[in-house]
Design a protein around this nucleic acid. Sequence first.
DNA 1: CATCATGTTATAAT
DNA 2: CATTATAACATGAT
Length: 281
Amino acid sequence: MKCMRLRFSAHCYAAVPMPELAEVEYYRKIWDPGLGSKILRVHLHPRARVFRGEPAESLPAALTGATFQASHAHGKQMLFAFSRRIWLGCHLGMSGEMLCLPPDHAPGKHDHLVLYTRTAALTFRDPRMFGRLRIHEGKSPPAWWSEMPPAAGSQNFTPAQVRTALTRHPRLPLKTLLLDQRYFPGIGNWMADEILWQLRWAPATPAGSLPPSAHTHLHRTLQKISRHALATIGQTWADPPKSWLFLHRWRDGGHCPRCSNPLTRADLRGRTCCWCPDCQG
DNA sequence: CATCATGTTATAAT
DNA sequence: CATTATAACATGAT
């Protein structure tokens, strides 16, 4: 449970996995102790649903004897590079987790992939199996990786990218659109709520109803929140400031850190949404 | 036992 | 065809 966020409630601590942009960046680094090491053995989970159509059976032969060379994160995607031009893509889904365990670790019920080095067991664990592992062989990274648009924290993230999303989907609620990884890679449920709360915009606002001047505001807020989250959660799992919605939105009964009025939590297009009906009326 | 979960995707509907 | 809406996926915590 070491890698899970601990969150205080009235009577207990609860473990919560939260695989959005900054959390993914944090998890990416968990395998770092294995960098430069040779993979001595590969364990595959017999069910391995997380491989979904990938030739998982080929992995042990491909990776045994290979060297773990580098890791990258982009939005909610991770990419691990090995020698022999082998690449391993990883998405944490809803409950995925990377672990670096002792080299004698016996694979658990939800450990879908374990790479054993001399000193560590690099593990991908995912109880709900909404996560995904992908295999690629080649000199360059796979297309699904290279073709992703810039993430919101990146220098290359442009107001034009925001404008395209808003104009192409004018009837979608802003909250729903912000979760679309084709335009905003890495933005997940808490980040989308945070962005709209900081902008004081109602989550259900149709994307097409914003004036052009608002596109700039949205672009700026996306960048600010992404960069701040990467600098805190992404580095040390530290919480963002208490003045953000972040710490107040996880359960019913929370209060707006700006106006102290009760927050609303409700379903919006199939996802939990939290907002301040006063600030974001 | 019932409800809910911070993600994605196939399919249906507009 | 482009966009939008919904259900399904699997498991664990409360």
